[in-house]
Protein backbone atom coordinates (compact mmCIF):
# COMPACT_ATOMS: atom_id res chain seq x y z
CA UNK A 1 0.00 0.00 0.00
CA UNK A 2 2.72 2.36 1.06
CA UNK A 3 4.66 1.50 -2.01
CA UNK A 4 1.73 2.26 -4.26
CA UNK A 5 1.10 5.48 -2.54
CA UNK A 6 4.65 6.49 -2.99
CA UNK A 7 4.71 5.58 -6.63
CA UNK A 8 1.54 7.39 -7.50
CA UNK A 9 1.96 10.38 -5.28
CA UNK A 10 2.58 13.49 -7.27
CA UNK A 11 6.12 14.71 -7.07
CA UNK A 12 6.62 17.59 -4.70
CA UNK A 13 6.86 20.84 -6.49
CA UNK A 14 10.39 22.12 -6.92
CA UNK A 15 11.05 25.47 -5.37
CA UNK A 16 11.15 28.19 -7.99
CA UNK A 17 14.67 28.80 -9.17
CA UNK A 18 14.25 32.48 -8.80
CA UNK A 19 14.31 33.77 -5.28
CA UNK A 20 16.46 30.99 -3.88
CA UNK A 21 18.90 32.47 -1.48
CA UNK A 22 22.41 31.63 -2.50
CA UNK A 23 24.19 34.38 -0.66
CA UNK A 24 26.78 33.08 1.83
CA UNK A 25 25.44 32.57 5.28
CA UNK A 26 26.83 34.57 8.14
CA UNK A 27 29.44 32.75 10.21
CA UNK A 28 27.09 32.44 13.15
CA UNK A 29 24.35 31.00 10.93
CA UNK A 30 26.80 28.43 9.62
CA UNK A 31 27.74 27.46 13.12
CA UNK A 32 24.16 26.68 13.95
CA UNK A 33 24.39 22.99 13.25
CA UNK A 34 21.80 20.36 14.02
CA UNK A 35 23.21 20.10 17.54
CA UNK A 36 21.53 21.39 20.68
CA UNK A 37 20.15 24.89 20.59
CA UNK A 38 22.76 27.18 22.02
CA UNK A 39 20.59 30.22 22.48
CA UNK A 40 20.22 30.65 26.18
CA UNK A 41 22.42 28.35 28.11
CA UNK A 42 26.01 27.58 28.57
CA UNK A 43 27.07 24.41 26.73
CA UNK A 44 30.13 22.42 27.75
CA UNK A 45 32.30 19.88 25.97
CA UNK A 46 35.37 18.01 27.11
CA UNK A 47 37.90 15.50 25.85
CA UNK A 48 41.13 13.95 26.98
CA UNK A 49 43.77 11.73 25.46
CA UNK A 50 46.99 10.24 26.72
CA UNK A 51 48.62 11.23 23.43
CA UNK A 52 50.71 9.20 21.03
CA UNK A 53 53.98 8.96 22.90
CA UNK A 54 53.15 8.50 26.54
CA UNK A 55 51.74 5.63 28.49
CA UNK A 56 50.64 7.66 31.51
CA UNK A 57 47.96 10.25 31.69
CA UNK A 58 49.03 12.93 34.14
CA UNK A 59 46.28 15.41 33.15
CA UNK A 60 43.09 15.81 35.13
CA UNK A 61 39.92 17.66 34.30
CA UNK A 62 36.79 18.57 36.19
CA UNK A 63 33.54 19.92 34.83
CA UNK A 64 30.46 20.93 36.75
CA UNK A 65 27.67 23.00 35.33
CA UNK A 66 24.31 24.03 36.69
CA UNK A 67 21.35 25.60 34.99
CA UNK A 68 17.89 26.08 36.35
CA UNK A 69 14.61 27.63 35.36
CA UNK A 70 11.50 28.77 37.11
CA UNK A 71 10.52 31.40 39.60
CA UNK A 72 13.50 32.64 41.56
CA UNK A 73 15.71 30.44 39.45
CA UNK A 74 19.34 30.12 40.32
CA UNK A 75 21.87 31.89 38.18
CA UNK A 76 23.82 29.78 35.78
CA UNK A 77 26.91 28.47 37.48
CA UNK A 78 29.82 26.25 36.67
CA UNK A 79 33.24 25.11 37.70
CA UNK A 80 35.81 24.01 35.12
CA UNK A 81 39.30 22.83 35.97
CA UNK A 82 42.24 21.51 34.01
CA UNK A 83 45.46 20.33 35.69
CA UNK A 84 48.60 18.87 34.17
CA UNK A 85 50.72 16.92 36.63
CA UNK A 86 54.44 16.35 36.61
CA UNK A 87 57.06 14.52 38.60
CA UNK A 88 58.69 11.15 38.87
CA UNK A 89 57.18 7.86 39.86
CA UNK A 90 53.44 8.37 39.71
CA UNK A 91 53.45 11.68 41.51
CA UNK A 92 52.33 13.68 38.46
CA UNK A 93 49.03 11.96 38.03
CA UNK A 94 48.39 11.91 41.76
CA UNK A 95 49.29 15.60 42.12
CA UNK A 96 46.95 16.71 39.36
CA UNK A 97 44.04 14.62 40.52
CA UNK A 98 44.21 15.51 44.21
CA UNK A 99 44.64 19.18 43.31
CA UNK A 100 41.54 19.15 41.16
CA UNK A 101 39.60 17.40 43.85
CA UNK A 102 40.82 19.77 46.54
CA UNK A 103 39.95 22.89 44.53
CA UNK A 104 36.53 21.54 43.54
CA UNK A 105 35.76 20.64 47.12
CA UNK A 106 36.75 24.03 48.51
CA UNK A 107 34.87 26.05 45.89
CA UNK A 108 31.77 23.93 46.22
CA UNK A 109 31.76 24.09 49.95
CA UNK A 110 32.43 27.80 50.28
CA UNK A 111 30.70 29.16 47.24
CA UNK A 112 28.49 27.02 45.03
CA UNK A 113 26.65 25.25 47.82
CA UNK A 114 25.58 28.63 49.18
CA UNK A 115 23.54 29.12 46.02
CA UNK A 116 21.03 26.72 47.46
CA UNK A 117 20.72 28.58 50.74
CA UNK A 118 17.34 30.19 51.27
CA UNK A 119 18.77 32.86 53.54
CA UNK A 120 21.64 34.95 52.30
CA UNK A 121 24.68 34.58 54.45
CA UNK A 122 26.46 37.83 55.01
CA UNK A 123 29.92 36.83 55.90
CA UNK A 124 31.23 34.95 52.93
CA UNK A 125 34.67 35.50 51.50
CA UNK A 126 35.09 37.30 48.18
CA UNK A 127 35.33 34.90 45.25
CA UNK A 128 38.82 36.04 44.40
CA UNK A 129 40.04 35.17 47.90
CA UNK A 130 38.16 31.88 47.80
CA UNK A 131 39.82 30.96 44.56
CA UNK A 132 43.22 31.90 45.90
CA UNK A 133 42.66 29.88 49.07
CA UNK A 134 41.43 26.90 47.08
CA UNK A 135 44.61 26.81 45.02
CA UNK A 136 46.78 27.35 48.07
CA UNK A 137 45.01 24.50 49.79
CA UNK A 138 45.63 22.26 46.80
CA UNK A 139 49.27 23.29 46.97
CA UNK A 140 49.43 22.32 50.61
CA UNK A 141 47.83 18.97 49.85
CA UNK A 142 50.37 18.20 47.16
CA UNK A 143 53.32 19.40 49.23
CA UNK A 144 52.39 17.12 52.11
CA UNK A 145 50.97 14.14 50.26
CA UNK A 146 52.94 13.99 47.03
CA UNK A 147 56.48 15.16 47.74
CA UNK A 148 58.27 15.66 44.50
CA UNK A 149 55.08 15.95 42.53
CA UNK A 150 53.60 19.04 41.03
CA UNK A 151 50.87 20.20 38.75
CA UNK A 152 49.60 23.11 36.76
CA UNK A 153 46.05 24.12 37.51
CA UNK A 154 43.64 26.44 35.79
CA UNK A 155 40.20 26.80 37.34
CA UNK A 156 37.24 28.85 36.17
CA UNK A 157 34.34 29.53 38.49
CA UNK A 158 31.30 30.91 36.69
CA UNK A 159 28.65 32.59 38.78
CA UNK A 160 26.02 34.70 37.09
CA UNK A 161 27.66 37.10 34.70
CA UNK A 162 31.17 36.87 36.03
CA UNK A 163 33.93 34.30 35.84
CA UNK A 164 36.67 34.08 38.44
CA UNK A 165 39.85 32.44 37.26
CA UNK A 166 42.63 30.88 39.29
CA UNK A 167 45.80 29.86 37.51
CA UNK A 168 49.22 28.38 38.16
CA UNK A 169 51.55 26.91 35.56
CA UNK A 170 51.22 26.67 31.82
CA UNK A 171 47.85 25.18 31.15
CA UNK A 172 45.82 27.88 29.46
CA UNK A 173 42.44 29.52 29.34
CA UNK A 174 41.57 30.92 25.93
CA UNK A 175 38.83 33.28 24.93
CA UNK A 176 37.67 32.28 21.47
CA UNK A 177 35.29 34.11 19.19
CA UNK A 178 34.72 34.26 15.46
CA UNK A 179 37.92 36.18 14.90
CA UNK A 180 40.54 35.13 17.41
CA UNK A 181 41.72 32.70 20.05
CA UNK A 182 43.34 34.74 22.78
CA UNK A 183 45.00 33.27 25.90
CA UNK A 184 43.78 35.08 29.01
CA UNK A 185 46.09 33.32 31.43
CA UNK A 186 49.80 33.94 31.67
CA UNK A 187 52.09 30.93 31.35
CA UNK A 188 54.38 30.58 34.33
CA UNK A 189 57.03 29.16 32.10
CA UNK A 190 60.57 30.29 31.67
CA UNK A 191 60.38 30.85 27.97
CA UNK A 192 57.30 33.00 28.45
CA UNK A 193 59.16 35.00 31.04
CA UNK A 194 62.15 35.38 28.72
CA UNK A 195 59.72 36.45 26.04
CA UNK A 196 58.22 39.03 28.40
CA UNK A 197 61.70 40.33 29.15
CA UNK A 198 62.37 40.67 25.44
CA UNK A 199 65.07 37.97 25.53
CA UNK A 200 63.22 35.59 23.23
CA UNK A 201 61.04 36.15 20.22
CA UNK A 202 57.69 34.32 20.21
CA UNK A 203 58.82 32.12 17.31
CA UNK A 204 61.98 31.21 19.25
CA UNK A 205 59.93 30.43 22.32
CA UNK A 206 57.77 28.00 20.38
CA UNK A 207 60.71 25.74 19.59
CA UNK A 208 62.82 26.40 22.66
CA UNK A 209 64.15 23.14 24.14
CA UNK A 210 63.13 24.24 27.62
CA UNK A 211 59.71 25.53 26.78
CA UNK A 212 58.23 23.09 29.26
CA UNK A 213 60.10 24.38 32.28
CA UNK A 214 57.82 26.10 34.77
CA UNK A 215 58.76 28.59 37.42
CA UNK A 216 55.51 28.20 39.26
CA UNK A 217 53.46 25.09 39.89
CA UNK A 218 51.26 23.62 42.56
CA UNK A 219 53.28 21.42 44.88
CA UNK A 220 56.56 23.31 44.68
CA UNK A 221 57.06 24.57 48.19
CA UNK A 222 54.92 26.08 50.88
CA UNK A 223 54.68 29.55 49.36
CA UNK A 224 52.70 29.64 46.19
CA UNK A 225 51.94 32.77 44.29
CA UNK A 226 48.64 32.30 42.48
CA UNK A 227 47.23 34.33 39.61
CA UNK A 228 43.58 35.10 40.29
CA UNK A 229 41.42 37.46 38.35
CA UNK A 230 37.86 38.06 37.35
CA UNK A 231 36.13 39.11 34.19
CA UNK A 232 32.65 39.29 32.73
CA UNK A 233 31.44 36.16 30.97
CA UNK A 234 32.10 36.43 27.25
CA UNK A 235 29.05 36.69 25.00
CA UNK A 236 28.53 34.52 21.95
CA UNK A 237 32.03 33.20 22.52
CA UNK A 238 33.95 30.28 23.96
CA UNK A 239 36.22 29.71 26.88
CA UNK A 240 38.72 26.91 26.33
CA UNK A 241 40.78 25.35 29.10
CA UNK A 242 43.58 23.12 27.90
CA UNK A 243 46.89 21.58 28.84
CA UNK A 244 50.06 22.24 26.87
CA UNK A 245 49.56 18.92 25.11
CA UNK A 246 47.02 20.85 23.05
CA UNK A 247 48.28 24.41 22.76
CA UNK A 248 51.90 23.31 22.46
CA UNK A 249 51.25 21.42 19.25
CA UNK A 250 48.13 22.93 17.70
CA UNK A 251 48.55 26.58 16.67
CA UNK A 252 46.11 29.11 18.12
CA UNK A 253 44.70 29.79 14.70
CA UNK A 254 43.84 26.12 14.15
CA UNK A 255 42.31 25.91 17.62
CA UNK A 256 40.11 28.88 16.77
CA UNK A 257 39.05 27.32 13.44
CA UNK A 258 38.25 23.96 14.97
CA UNK A 259 36.25 25.48 17.81
CA UNK A 260 34.18 27.83 15.68
CA UNK A 261 33.47 25.37 12.90
CA UNK A 262 32.44 22.41 15.06
CA UNK A 263 28.78 21.58 15.50
CA UNK A 264 28.94 21.81 19.25
CA UNK A 265 31.52 22.10 22.05
CA UNK A 266 31.77 18.35 22.53
CA UNK A 267 32.61 17.75 18.91
CA UNK A 268 35.04 20.66 19.04
CA UNK A 269 36.91 19.08 21.96
CA UNK A 270 37.14 15.76 20.20
CA UNK A 271 38.44 17.48 17.09
CA UNK A 272 41.00 19.41 19.12
CA UNK A 273 42.32 16.21 20.65
CA UNK A 274 42.43 14.58 17.21
CA UNK A 275 44.40 17.52 15.85
CA UNK A 276 46.93 17.31 18.69
CA UNK A 277 47.40 13.59 18.13
CA UNK A 278 47.68 14.13 14.40
CA UNK A 279 50.50 16.57 15.14
CA UNK A 280 52.40 13.84 16.98
CA UNK A 281 50.61 13.85 20.31
CA UNK A 282 53.84 14.15 22.32
CA UNK A 283 52.05 14.82 25.59
CA UNK A 284 48.75 14.22 27.33
CA UNK A 285 45.95 16.30 25.86
CA UNK A 286 43.06 17.81 27.77
CA UNK A 287 40.43 20.26 26.56
CA UNK A 288 37.35 21.72 28.23
CA UNK A 289 35.30 24.04 26.07
CA UNK A 290 32.49 26.24 27.36
CA UNK A 291 30.16 28.08 25.00
CA UNK A 292 28.55 31.25 26.35
CA UNK A 293 25.38 32.28 24.53
CA UNK A 294 24.70 35.80 23.30
CA UNK A 295 23.13 37.99 25.94
Amino acid sequence: MDLLKRIFRPKPAKPPVDGVKTAPLSPSAIRQGPGPRLDHHVVVGMAQSVGMERTHNEDSLFVMHGSSAGLESLPEFGLFIVADGMGGHRSGEVASSISVRSVARRLNQDSLLHLFDLEVEDDTLPLLDLMRHALEEANQAVVTRVPGGGTTLTAVLMLGHQVTIGHVGDSRAYLIDNATAKPITRDHSLVKRLEELGQLKPEEAEVHPQRNVLYRAIGQGANLEVDVFTQPVPRDAFLLLCSDGLWGVVPDLSIQKIVTSAKNPQEACEELVKAANAAGGPDNITAVLVFFPPE
Partner: peptide, 16 residues
Protein backbone atom coordinates in the same frame (compact mmCIF):
# COMPACT_ATOMS: atom_id res chain seq x y z
CA UNK B 1 58.41 15.97 26.80
CA UNK B 2 55.51 17.32 28.69
CA UNK B 3 55.53 19.65 31.57
CA UNK B 4 58.33 19.68 34.05
CA UNK B 5 59.53 21.83 36.85
CA UNK B 6 62.83 23.60 37.10
CA UNK B 7 64.09 24.83 40.44
CA UNK B 8 63.77 28.34 39.23
CA UNK B 9 64.06 31.65 40.89
CA UNK B 10 67.77 31.30 41.62
CA UNK B 11 69.00 30.32 38.18
CA UNK B 12 70.61 32.85 35.87
CA UNK B 13 68.92 33.79 32.60
CA UNK B 14 71.63 32.22 30.45
CA UNK B 15 71.11 28.82 32.06
CA UNK B 16 67.86 28.56 30.16
Amino acid sequence: KGTMIGTEGYSPPEQY
